[in-house]
Amino acid sequence: MYGLGIWRGLRVTLKHFVNTYIEDVKWGFRRHIPAEAFPARQGLDARGVFTVEYPDEKLAVPERFRFIPFLVVENYDHPERPGHDWCTSCGICAKVCPPQCIWIVRGEDPETGRPVPEPEEFYIDIDICMNCGLCAEFCPFDAIKMDHDYELASYDRTTAHIFDKARLSKEFRYWQAIAPTRAAEEAEARGGWEHKDVLKAKAKAAKASE
């Protein structure tokens, strides 16, 4: 019969419409649904369409999420080296970066002129960065990681969009907080929660004391 197809289509749209309200009835048409209902509404079991009320509720991004990179520094309350860079300015991230948005000035000893394992300056131009995560993937020291903070909108790009070392540095604690599983995996691979060099020095010291 002509028109049956359209009728079927309208039935589907009606079903969608009704489904949306069935779920809302369950929560008594409250404007802000309690947090425990959130996974069900934003998961596979949800019938109907549910909006993430963005500023009032936000979808937490998964652990592997990548946005602009940040530099891991030692916790500021670290007993031995508070705020010390994990980065050794080996330059691998700058080499592997596809759009070449990383600039590093390698640290140098002012007296001997020999390189020291700490970057003097570190820049990332976030207008070029493509969030690919290769820098974090190939960093041998777990010193550069992809951030989860996507709320970066600004009114001016000339001053705010080249991130320098101060802007990029975040405590190791932050990385542990946003990606606990991965931080643990990496620590296991390194052999401890400390930086690779620290662990190495400790092992050396232990050997020497033997």
Partner: peptide, 19 residues
């Protein structure tokens, strides 16, 4: 308003709208 990211996620864009 500038909304950085490649691409910015929808939430990042919404943040830009609020800005």
């Amino acid at each position: 308003v500038y909304v950085p990211g490649c691409p910015p996620t929808p939430q990042a864009l919404l943040y830009g709208f609020i800005a």
